[in-house]
Design a protein around this nucleic acid. Structure first.
Lengths: 247, 247
DNA sequence: TGTCTTTGTGTCAATTATACACTTTGCGAA
DNA sequence: TTCGCAAAGTGTATAATTGACACAAAGACA
């Protein structure tokens, strides 16, 4: 780690956050709008910024997320580092950087993080250099700034892998939820249908949810039972090394 | 990504490589020996160094690995980024850095990579600042420089996750191998026993190995059949989204 | 020819995965 | 009031997979 020569550089380091949210129907990602500058239309991007001196990477990701979108207290997990020397060199990205950055040609390596939230609990408030922050349907993302589309894909893959092997996903739901909501959540993330009866059977057998004495009201169909997440059983399961949730 | 203030830094970026090798019995990791300096005994470390300007992260990892150990053409996969501001600040690490680095206090964020090789095919040759490079049993690693023990743990966890869900591991074996060797390989990585008959049944059903018309010779017991990896079937399996190898 | 060592093999029971369709509930419109 | 609607909720049969378990076969060597 100590050799020195002309090739070496001090690149800049940023973090970008891929926050997935679920609106009871579809999976969305929190994106900010990059301001339009001369000849460059505005464009959606992941919330991300450079890290600070005294921060570790996790802290940097949390801070940046809060600064750009107002969201805080979100558990973030690392996706990967993205460091292609050309990751900022698409023409529009370059033009944009030139108009807003002091050192537009500096290489930037980014550490991507992801998380899952119940988007009803988080109303993003754009600030700092973000012009807007909003929840965009994953399926409708077209072009993103820099290599952010690639980062979103990598984060989504990570999320799929994780939800297959571990019963996460309860963070995305409100305190009380119905099994149909949970079912749709899993289908949204995995991008495929899951049999309703088999899904319910599995969930109930694991005892990760317990039914409340409360039903939906005012719906024009049979009201569904509300459930809550049983954190105690979840912790037991994880302690026992259970890592095959099996979807 | 463009705000500017006093907190921001240009840290240095390195890569560290966790190369796992298998000697037909146990899992080992390729470590280099960090030179002793005044008052600091020599210490084992992962091969790692700073990245170059024009390199992407994968290329940097390959180059660094080659420079320090002579190993090349190894497929490396990212583990994670490690960027704690104090990751280089253990006392002995600091003393060592002061004696060999021009800027011992610079913060260094490292991108860790890992791989698996058949160690018979790779005889490490220490060079550059590595005093020695050798294959150390994973179970016998004691203290490593910097946060490298943490990095090895993270890489091992990644390797386990991967070998559970995907039939990797053939890269670790010679072109022809016996099912017992493959069996021991899996047991070494997972750190637990696997039933011999069940293991063989699963391997043969997946058709990832095919038997050769060749047996062991000169062994003082029943000679075992040689097999080879069937790459075609492996690719088919991966294409079909098969991701539950099931160990 | 006997002993040693590792290879190689089959079955049964338990668990898990998959496929599949109808009844129930409550609302609101006619 | 009753009818239709929409989503909730429920059971079973079959196939596939897992896990546990013990002994015979092959070849080397003494």
């Amino acid at each position: 780690m100590q050799s020195k020569n002309k090739h070496e550089i001090n690149p800049r380091i940023s973090t970008d956050c891929v926050i997935f949210g679920f609106d009871f129907n579809q999976l969305r990602v929190l994106l900010i709008e990059r301001s339009a500058v001369e000849n460059v239309p505005s464009m959606m991007a992941l919330p991300g910024d450079l890290i600070y001196e005294e921060e570790n990477l996790d802290m940097a990701a949390s801070r940046v997320l809060k600064e750009l979108t107002g969201l805080e207290e979100i558990y973030l997990e690392q996706v990967a580092a993205f460091g292609d020397p050309n990751r900022l060199s698409k023409k529009n990205d370059q033009l944009w950087l030139k108009s807003v950055r002091q050192d537009p040609d500096a290489r930037v390596i980014t550490i991507a993080y992801y998380s899952l939230v119940n988007l009803d609990n988080y109303a993003p408030q754009a600030s700092s250099f973000a012009k807007a922050a909003s929840w965009i349907l994953v399926d409708e993302i077209k072009e993103l700034a820099f290599d952010h589309a690639e980062i979103v894909s990598a984060a989504l893959k990570k999320l799929k892998d994780k939800i297959i092997s571990q019963p996460i996903g309860f963070n995305l739901l409100p305190e009380k939820f119905t099994l149909s909501q949970l079912h749709r959540l899993y289908e949204s993330i995995l991008g495929r249908d899951l049999d309703k009866r088999n899904f319910r059977r599995k969930m109930l057998k694991l005892k990760l949810v317990e039914s409340l004495d409360e039903k939906q009201e005012g719906v024009p169909h049979k009201p569904s039972q509300y459930f809550k997440f049983n954190e105690e059983n979840y912790n037991k399961l994880i302690e026992n090394g259970y890592d095959n949730f099996g979807f």
